[in-house]
Write a protein that binds this DNA or RNA. Structure first.
Lengths: 232, 232
DNA sequence: TTGTGGTGTTAAGATTTCGTTAAGGCCCCC
DNA sequence: GGGGGCCTTAACGAAATCTTAACACCACAA
């Protein structure tokens, strides 16, 4: 994911404009909603990364919007409101908002709070992806750590070899065509360097097929491509 | 553990008292610190769930306290400060604070923001924070004190070298991409100063790889990045 | 047998990436 | 103003990696 997608829920055109201009200038993508109903729809359709929510909407109470959104997602919600009473803040925060700014607000502060939220998103997503380690016979790949082992002995792989091994391992059993592999490793632009692919397959095999008796991890499908087979 | 442990860092006795009384009444446990040094120590010893931090401390800058804590843990930090300038807020938030309240603050709002933070902790899984001191072979890093040792001999590191070492040590075994490292050290804005990174790696290595026979702490993954390996 | 197409292997450049050194700028403190 | 860390940038030899090309091998069919 390259650019963050922000949903802006705000009925006042001038403030909405201020925010959109600011976000655009700081390399965010955004969608806008002018009332509570569309806010809910947009949130459901676009799955924004962060929601900026004004509480004073024409059609429904802002706190109700928070509750509705919280009924199905934990997407961070930053409230931007003209109400500065404690009770308003508390109600919104307890309903599920993550932060609360009062108008008039500083654009720089808003950006800082967005950065805080992003930081949390990335570090929460970085925690422990469920399938972070792949096992197949004596082969083990730790995707998170970015390295591969053969019986607890680390394999010294070059970047392309590693990518190749990951690609094969993520599709165990499936045959991957030459063009598919080439597209995935080198990116769509390249053409017809099957020669290179063969060389990499050779070195990769040499590194992980230790002996003639050991399992044959990578199989050649003549005229089609390659596949990694599940051994056990 | 059903009661949350809050660390209160505040030198003003009356405010500290207000907070402790409030927390006690709302079924929290707490520890207190009156200055930056003890704040870091307490954080390292007690592993609080949330830290409430006043920026105006007698012995060191509050933002520096945030940076030190962030060098080894993601424990939520809520700043409570008399400074209401945007630049102060932004500096603190970008240094790693999670929220920022300005004095005089509403006790009820503080409680609400604490609840928001708790909510995030529980849904994130409440993983146990890392140790305050990291050990790997002859290398030892005392995150709370902000210094590193090689066999009880202190390493003289520049700020960036230290950050780099912390980043690597917190991800032992994992390969860290160039861009990931650069983002974390210099902040998202910079680009393409891989040259600098290489220079820092060189100086850092020179300082902690004492001999050719000694363990190679920092390994380079050509074309990808670097990683610290676990030695024993 | 001989030719052909697809494949595996090897080696030699070409290219990218790395480590090191040194020069210069910036900032803080004296 | 001067000096000393600290950081950035540039340059260059060295090392690793990638590409390319050549050739051997095998199966199969004419």
């Amino acid at each position: 994911m390259d650019k963050y997608l922000i949903e802006i829920v705000e009925d006042d055109a001038s403030i909405r404009n201020l925010i959109t201009v600011t976000l655009k200038a700081n390399d965010y993508r955004y969608v806008t909603a002018l009332n509570g109903q569309t806010a809910l729809m947009e949130a459901a359709c676009h799955n924004p990364d962060i929601i900026l929510l004004d509480l004073g909407l024409p059609d429904m109470d802002g706190v109700e919007v928070i509750r509705r959104i919280r009924s199905w997602t934990n997407t961070p919600i930053i409230v931007i409101s003209a109400r500065s009473e404690d009770t308003d803040k508390i109600e919104a925060l307890d309903a599920g908002a993550d932060d609360y700014l009062t108008k008039p607000f500083s654009v720089a502060e808003l950006l800082a709070r967005l950065r805080v939220t992003q930081r949390r998103l990335t570090q929460a997503g970085h925690e422990s992806p469920p399938d972070a380690v792949f096992r197949n016979g004596r082969l083990r790949i730790d995707y998170a750590a970015g390295c591969a082992y053969l019986d607890d002995e680390e394999l010294k792989l070059t970047p392309i070899e590693y990518k190749l091994l990951c690609l094969l391992s993520r599709n165990v059993g499936k045959v991957l065509t030459h063009t598919y592999i080439i597209q995935n490793i080198w990116g769509g632009s390249w053409e017809n360097n099957i020669a290179s692919l063969r060389v990499f397959m050779a070195t990769l095999r040499k590194k992980l097929e230790t002996g003639p008796d050991s399992p044959q991890y990578i199989q050649t499908q003549i005229g089609v491509g390659y596949r990694m087979i599940k051994v056990d």
